[in-house]
Structure formats: structure tokens, C-alpha cells
Design a protein around this nucleic acid. Sequence first.
DNA 1: ATTCCAATCTTGACGCTGTTAAGTTTTGAT
DNA 2: ATCAAAACTTAACAGCGTCAAGATTGGAAT
Lengths: 204, 204
Amino acid sequence: MENKPYHHGNLRNALIRAGLELISTEGEENLSLRKVALKCGVSNAAPYAHFNSKDEFIAAIQQHIMDLFTSTLEQTAEMYADTPALLSMLGTAYVKFFYRNPLYFDFLFSRKNIRINLSLDCAGEKEIPPLRILKQTAAQAFCKVDMPEPIMQNKIIAMWALVHGLSAIATMPNVEYDEDWETRIEEIIKSISIPYMTQQESKK
Amino acid sequence: MENKPYHHGNLRNALIRAGLELISTEGEENLSLRKVALKCGVSNAAPYAHFNSKDEFIAAIQQHIMDLFTSTLEQTAEMYADTPALLSMLGTAYVKFFYRNPLYFDFLFSRKNIRINLSLDCAGEKEIPPLRILKQTAAQAFCKVDMPEPIMQNKIIAMWALVHGLSAIATMPNVEYDEDWETRIEEIIKSISIPYMTQQESKK
DNA sequence: ATTCCAATCTTGACGCTGTTAAGTTTTGAT
DNA sequence: ATCAAAACTTAACAGCGTCAAGATTGGAAT
């Protein structure tokens, strides 16, 4: 339309979208501010009007993906609310999200990108939403089984570790996408989370 | 002693040691071939007599750490051989290794560094030793419980995912080292791995 | 012992990167 | 209409991985 107006108009979002695309296609290690700027038809230093550094730019993309992740879990939590399958479905959704977007996993959780508080002790204003959802659901599920407090704490951590580890494994190279794997992931998670529910059922 | 002989003598190993130190102190993102070369009192391009690329250099360091990791697990496997605690001790050793060297975890498992076969299906000549040890031990442990084959497969993957996920969590920033955590890690792993043993004991 | 090749290392360069300084264009509030 | 702030360009800096060309050395073959 207009032939290169001096001001882009929506550069910040355009940069984030371009960066997201580069990460999805070429991986994070091939992402540079200059490439992203070029992709948006803008000069080297233009991004610095919107981000103070590459790190800040990366953090913005990270936040974008985190929002995606969060809303995925929230949808699942809503869909299976108050059903016995809630916890295992939530765990499955956790793994599936990354299994379907393998490049997102390393990008979100690689050490140098983590600027958010992932601390283990349940305290936390700055706790990221996905973990909050998972922990709350797990706590509720395990609570119904009137488990001793410290054991419940450990169970929650175990649940998180399981789905996080499964995500790490499922997104490794040489592990190509396979629909059967999705059902298998479900089985594995159920085998950990369900026993404590049914075990309780038989107790009643 | 001799003031800068033209030939270093043992440059390859010196480079690896220097790289290892840089990773341990400043993290992988601050590792450059030039810094490593300087640290060894050698010029920019000297490393290229021993490594074809930075990637190859990284792979060599990665192998070094992997060997450390492997021998740690092997020691544990030997120490607790034929005891009921073997599996949980091996899992604990897996997590502790990274908990005590947090920077190693991302370095070993971040996507771009993985050049080894981590495939899930137990087939594998190229399978890395640590996983082989863990899988074999888990298989043996779960085997004693005469579990159906597919369920056992899932249990093994769950075990791996648990310890891998715990490692990821334990090495996150903001999670400072804490001796109590080590015993807690042990508890969590036991709560997953032991039940199937004791359950079997009572079956006999 | 001499020769000579291959391994090792240096120097200097290339293009790419993140980042900054200085200057230009545009927007929008007054 | 004015003018400050925001958005963007251009040009430069140092650091990076990498390579080509040349210098130095060790060791095997003669």
C-alpha cells in the first residue's frame, strides 16, 4: 500500500510475531535481532525503540508462549472441572502442548531464558500461571484422599516432575511426532495420578 | 618454565578443561572459542587444529560431562546392586548429580547440544549409558513384580521422566542448594518406585 | 644427521552479531 | 503553528565463528 512509511505503526507486535516464526522454523539459536528487523522491513537498530536489549525481546516472546500455554491449561481445567479425570487430563495437556510445539519447550525453560519465579515452595506471588493451575488441581485431587500434608506436597512435586520430564523427553530430537504417543502419555500419567484416587475410592 | 613454546603440548585437553571451567562459572552462553583460547595462552584459530568447529568442541565437553554422569550412576548401581533400594538410589543419584552441578543440566540436555540418540524405544546401539543403566535397573525391578509388558514399559518411562523432571526443577534458578532437599528428593522417588516392590513382597 | 612431511600454531581477514551515538522523520499534544 | 517525544535510519564499535596463508615445530624416513 503506502511505500514504506517512516513509522511502521505496529512494529512491536510485528517483531514478536516475526521472532516467534523464526524460533518455530529455525530454532532459537538462529534468531537474531537483525534478521527479525529485516523480516519486518526495518533497520538494524529499530527494535531498540521497543526493547532495551535482545534479552528483553526474548522475554517478550517467552511471555507470549507462556500465555498460550496457560490458556491451554485453563481450557482443559474448565473442560474437566470436578471430574475424576481432571488431574490426569491437565497433566496430559501439559505434555501435549510441548509435544506439538517441541521448539517451545527448550525456549521456555532453558536456563538463560528463565526470568520468572519457578520456585518450588508453593509460596509465590510471582509464580507462573501454568504451575499454579497444576499445583492447585493436584492439591485438590490429593486432598480428597486425606493424605498427610508432607506426603501430599511430595506427590504434587512428583506430578509436576513427571509431566515436565515427559515433556522434556517427548520434545527431544529423534522423537518424531506420533499420535499413538499421545495416548501413551495419557496412560503413563493416569498410572501415576489415578491410583491414589481409586485406592481411596476402595477405602470408603 | 619455558617461555611460550610454539607448540602447547596438550592443547586439546587444556581447551576442554578451560571450557568446562567457563561453563561452570559463567554459563554456556558466555563461552566462546576465543576466550577459551586466550585462557590457554593461545591464539584465536589454534583450537581449529583440534576441533573442526565450535559445535565439535561443545560436543567434546558434553561427552566429558556425560562420562562423569555415567560413572556416578555406575558407582551407585554397584553399591546398591541386588538390594531393594537400588532403583530409588539410582534415581536419587540421577537427580543429585545435576542438583550439585546445575549448569550441567541445561548444557547436557538443551536441544542444540543433543547429538546423541535419546530415543524412547529401548532399541539402541547409540543409546547413552546413563539411560541404559536406569532403564535396565528399572526393568529388572519392575520385572520382579511380573507386570504386564506394556505397563512395565510405561513404568520405566515414568521413572525416567520423574527423575529427569526433578532434575530440571532442582536446577532451576531461584532454587538454591539445600541439603534437606536431597533427602526430600529421595522421599519423592521412593514414593514412586518402592510401592511396586513392597506390593510384590506382600504378594509372595 | 639430514630431509621433509604433517601437525601445530599465528596473523589477518571476512561476515555476522548486539549495541550505541547521532541525526532524521513523524506523531500528537498544546 | 509549535515543539517535545516517539520512531526510525545510518554508521560505527567490539566480539564472535571461521577460514586462508604462512610460520614453527616434531618426528619419521632416509
